[in-house]
Design a protein around this nucleic acid. Sequence first.
DNA 1: AACTGTGAAGCCATTCACAGCT
DNA 2: AGCTGTGAATGGCTTCACAGTT
Lengths: 222, 222
Amino acid sequence: MKREPNAKEPMGRRAAISPLTVRRLSLYLRCLDHLAAEGVTTVSSRQLGDALGLTAAQVRKDLAQFGQFGRPGVGCHIADLAGRLRGIFGTDRRWELALVGVGSLGRALLRYRGFRDKGFHISAAFDTAAGKVGRKYGEVVVQRMSRLASVVAEKGIRLAVLTVPAAAAQDVADQLCRAGIRGILNFAPANLNVPEGVTVVPVDMAAQIEQLSYFVNSPNRA
Amino acid sequence: MKREPNAKEPMGRRAAISPLTVRRLSLYLRCLDHLAAEGVTTVSSRQLGDALGLTAAQVRKDLAQFGQFGRPGVGCHIADLAGRLRGIFGTDRRWELALVGVGSLGRALLRYRGFRDKGFHISAAFDTAAGKVGRKYGEVVVQRMSRLASVVAEKGIRLAVLTVPAAAAQDVADQLCRAGIRGILNFAPANLNVPEGVTVVPVDMAAQIEQLSYFVNSPNRA
DNA sequence: AACTGTGAAGCCATTCACAGCT
DNA sequence: AGCTGTGAATGGCTTCACAGTT
């Protein structure tokens, strides 16, 4: 995972957006959906910021990168903005996922509703353990690893969830990349090396609880 | 083993460290443990940086905040540095955790080895569902929520793992804070309001897969 | 009056470059 | 030589402040 100097290339009409901004966009969308469920139709940047602990200017700057939303004096139309954000994320369509590693975490994710609600459907699961192959968890039957490439091709799967032990992670990631996967949600505590064009988003829960104990441990509070 | 604090700050009180740095410290520690397991005893900032996709200068700046490590011409002694990092995180001692919400994700975390390996032990679990109370998952028996405060006090629990549905998250967080919890690892897709002195670290998997699809979807590579 | 969108300023984080140690 | 620790420079992110719109 090497960070290139990020040359400013004019390709595509979207300029590169910082990962920090992308993370906040998710928060905005969650908040908008929440408001919409309550019947609210309009929201100001200040309201959004207050709900999330951000400044109103930050919210406006983030959203401004994608064009003009809300009208002065009124605010943003929630449904419009939410739809637009979904378009940006690509969650206005359905995504098929492959999951590799059917341990306890993998099984939990096979049943996790949070993915389905956003349009992400785990439609194939793989494991090396013979005892697991053939078993059905949630909706999918576990298959052997040798079927990975053909299933990925057949179902047009572009994203994978990686829930194998750290020691196996790089090897499995290589297989996923060869199979044509474009993105990996990596739960293994390992840094993955992937070719250009494949994105890895790490979900390192061990690191996150470490952060928690750091902040609880340390005397400084902001 | 002479430590030379060099009078940056008196050792007792640490200056506030940016969350970005804290996240990288976790990566350093993981990498150091990995190297140590291979029998390596010394590492340079360049090697560490290369392994993680960071510059050598970044690594040195991050570590310099905590004093002097490695010797010029040699590098850092891995065991020393790792031990020091564990001290910073507080993972050189044992932590007791309470888990609230024994759904599929909660059950998976009750068995998750990644926490135990870092010294975090889930020693109590709670749920509102009568059907789950009394059942044993992994090592712990699920208890009813009304017992939360007394168990937390009794076992000296300071951290909690929150795996309840979003709609219940704030209410449960309030209960946790009243019970004296100091930190919450929040898996619920909701922004929690907590009093001063309580830390929340969000683990929003839905947002993370949204990020993944954004980067796969968008033309610009990072 | 309320709110947006945006240049400019301010602040923080990263990288550079080099003196100094082993 | 090889490496660290650190001031200086750079670059990026956030906040400020205000002109402009409804």
